[in-house]
Computed example of a mutant assay.
Amino acid sequence: MIYSVDVRIVAPVRDTEVTDRVADAVSNLFPNAELEHEAGQLVAETHTLDPFSDRLHEQEILDTARREFEKRKTEEGFSFALKKQAAFKGVVNFAVGNPDELGDIDVHVTVREPSVDEFIAHIAPPTEDGRPVDTDRRD
């Protein structure tokens, strides 16, 4: 199946932070993203979430990820927020509740092909007993 998505990642850079460390946090989870420095923030764009999906599988947090994606889903896509400090360590940790004082990494996904639901199932497939049901995709 062909996937057509635009992913926009925005990470605030506070005065007390080193910009390169924030860039590393984004790149750790989205290695294909092209980063640009803007006033007070980093903005990145990519057209794949496969490396991010790999992390979700490795950390065995597919159900959590799917719940987070569903919370802010629209007809055009979905969005979610990640903790910056965990991302710096290469770990996916969804930001829930109040934003971190350094700000969270906001991710906005626009899905053109296939449907939003099909794309969510691709990157965070439904599980049974903690294992992805879609065995064609991964182990």
Rank of each mutant, 00 (worst) to 15 (best):
I2P: 14
V5Q: 01
D129W: 15
S79N: 10
L56A: 03
T74C: 09
D106P: 08
E34N: 08
A44E: 01
N98G: 08
V133M: 13
T74N: 10
D117F: 12
D24H: 14
L102G: 10
E113A: 12
P51E: 03
D117A: 11
E60S: 15
R55Y: 14
D20A: 12
A95Q: 07
D129L: 12
A87W: 04
S53Q: 04
D50G: 09
V13Y: 10
V10Q: 10
D15I: 03
V107R: 00
P99E: 05
P114V: 04
G40V: 08
L35Y: 07
D54G: 10
L82N: 00
T127S: 02
I120Q: 03
D117E: 14
P114C: 06
G103W: 07
V13F: 08
P31V: 02
T135K: 15
I120D: 01
M1A: 12
E34P: 04
R21S: 12
T48A: 00
D100W: 10
G97K: 08
P31I: 05
R138H: 13
V96K: 15
F119I: 06
D50A: 14
P99A: 08
E113L: 11
F52W: 01
V43W: 03
V10A: 11
T74Q: 07
K89V: 06
H47V: 05
E34R: 14
D15W: 10
D129G: 10
A86C: 03
T135S: 15
N32R: 01
A33M: 03
I61M: 11
G90V: 04
N98T: 12
I61H: 07
L56P: 02
A23G: 09
Q41R: 15
G97H: 11
G40T: 05
D6G: 04
V13I: 09
R72D: 12
N93K: 15
E58L: 12
R138Q: 07
P31G: 03
D6Q: 06
E118V: 01
E34F: 14
R8L: 10
K89L: 13
N28Q: 06
T127G: 00
G77F: 02
L49H: 02
D100V: 06
G130V: 05
H57P: 05
V22E: 03
Q41N: 10
L29E: 00
T48Q: 00
A39Y: 15
P51T: 04
F78M: 05
V7N: 00
I2N: 15
F119R: 07
N93S: 14
Y3S: 12
K84P: 02
D63C: 09
P132C: 03
T135W: 15
A65N: 05
L49E: 00
A95S: 14
D63M: 11
D100H: 11
I2F: 15
P132Y: 04
T48V: 00
V116Y: 04
H57M: 11
L49V: 00
L56T: 01
L35R: 07
I9G: 00
D117H: 09
D54W: 12
V43C: 02
